[in-house]
């Protein structure tokens, strides 16, 4: 084979491989098609889930819940008593929030959430979890050395503030209610919600920036 032919063959080869999905992508496609044929799941269900979690559902839902808790003491009491029930007031109940628990940061306490087993997360109100939440490093270290890990997130806690780590399970998931920043007492719910970050509701951020 001449040099030219080798190059041409290499290009064709590269083209074919760029078109061919990766091995795990092919396996997912294979099992999806097998399940659809057996009537065990529908393509529409899969597509709707992917679209919702790629675009629509994000931490904004959780931020709205927290903002209302700051403004409405009655709602906050209901949220702390039974968060799964309280978020129905927004219509946010859904997969993975059947047993939701809200935990509140105070001047004396800081809360943070983990799933030491795998990656359980209240994704119907916080959207997809960030990569670090699923990492082995976070899952093992936040329990062993919480103050050190929180410091790596920029949360420096003095000794007098107690740290509570909540370990999620498939049936029990948590949302942290961060503290309302000072000077925002007259703000509206939407203005407040815009301040509230995803990490503050997992507990790896404590102070919220007021812009």
């Amino acid at each position: 084979m001449s040099t030219f032919d080798s190059d041409a063959a290499a290009k064709v080869h590269a083209h074919l491989h760029s078109h061919l999905p990766s091995e795990p992508a092919l396996r997912v496609k294979a099992l999806e098609s097998l399940l659809v044929e057996r009537g065990m799941i529908s393509t529409e269900t899969i597509d709707a889930w992917v679209e919702a979690y790629s675009e629509e559902i994000g931490p904004k839902r959780g931020a709205q819940v927290v903002a209302r808790a700051w403004l409405d003491a009655g709602f906050k009491a209901r949220l702390l008593k039974n968060a799964a029930e309280a978020i129905k007031e927004f219509g946010f109940e859904g997969n993975a929030t059947g047993h939701l628990i809200a935990v509140e940061n105070t001047d004396q306490t800081h809360n943070a959430v983990v799933c030491t087993l795998c990656s359980c997360y209240p994704f119907s109100i916080l959207g997809m979890s960030p990569s670090w939440y699923k990492s082995a490093a976070y899952r093992s270290r936040i329990v062993r050395e919480p103050r050190k890990v929180l410091a790596e997130f920029g949360v420096e806690l003095p000794d007098e503030i107690a740290v509570k780590i909540w370990d999620s399970t498939a049936e029990l998931r948590y949302i942290v209610i961060p503290q309302q920043p000072k000077g925002t007492e007259s703000w509206t719910e939407d203005q407040l919600a815009a301040l509230i970050t995803r990490n503050s509701m997992i507990g790896t951020q404590r102070e919220l920036a007021v812009s």
Partner: peptide, 15 residues
């Protein structure tokens, strides 16, 4: 920190 460098919650791949 390594944690905050991996703060994305976006799917990298459709699968």
């Amino acid at each position: 920190s390594p944690f905050l460098k991996n703060d994305s919650a976006v799917f990298d791949q459709p699968w």
